[in-house]
Simulated assay, not measured.
Amino acid sequence: MATTDTHSEIEEYLGQVPSWMGEISEPATDHSWGIMRDLLLGETELSGREKALVGLGAAAAIQCPYCTYFHQEEAKLAGVNDVELTEAINVSGTTRYFSTVLHGARVDEDQFADEMGEVFEHLENQQAAAAGDD
């Protein structure tokens, strides 16, 4: 279990020390809390809303019911509505789908990067042209 100071800090942040945190091996307990506190709960370059959506997408992709529940509730707390939750999950599923296709077909990574570079250059040009039409 976490040190007394860490235990108190977790309780202050979360209102309790969730029982699952007792499953983290002793050498990593304080460090694991620090990662959760600083990266997930702390102020970072990403907003809480953005982090919740990223977390939800990853949780859905790895099919973790615990993480999916956590990040869905986190997203709702950050003001994400049901339509946005559904879209985030769909984006995650789409990424997983195409990743499966790319890996299964053993698409050459260099060729993929070159082609996608051209695609994004084209998209940037389209955006610039559309912005000029305003």
Rank of each mutant, 00 (worst) to 15 (best):
T3F: 06
T3V: 04
T4Q: 12
D5P: 06
T6D: 02
H7S: 08
I10A: 03
I10V: 12
E11C: 01
E11V: 02
E12P: 10
E12I: 02
G15V: 02
Q16C: 02
S19H: 06
S19E: 09
M21I: 13
G22L: 02
I24A: 00
S25F: 03
E26K: 06
A28M: 01
H31Y: 03
S32C: 01
G34P: 06
G34H: 11
I35M: 14
D38R: 13
L39I: 15
L40W: 13
G42K: 15
E43Y: 11
T44I: 11
S47C: 01
V54P: 12
L56D: 12
G57A: 00
A60N: 12
I62D: 04
Q63L: 07
C67G: 01
C67F: 03
T68C: 13
T68V: 04
Y69G: 11
Q72G: 11
E73Q: 08
E74M: 15
K76R: 15
K76N: 02
L77F: 10
G79M: 09
G79I: 12
N81C: 05
N81G: 12
D82M: 03
D82N: 08
V83A: 05
L85H: 07
L85E: 11
L85W: 00
E87K: 06
E87T: 09
E87G: 03
A88T: 14
I89F: 04
V91H: 08
G93A: 10
R96P: 02
R96S: 02
R96M: 04
Y97I: 07
Y97H: 06
Y97C: 01
R106I: 10
D108N: 14
D108W: 01
E109I: 09
D110A: 05
Q111R: 07
Q111W: 04
Q111T: 13
Q111C: 02
Q111P: 01
A113W: 02
G117K: 03
G117P: 04
F120R: 12
F120S: 11
E121I: 04
E121G: 06
H122K: 12
L123T: 05
L123C: 01
E124S: 05
N125C: 06
Q127W: 00
A129K: 10
A130Q: 07
A131S: 14
G132A: 15
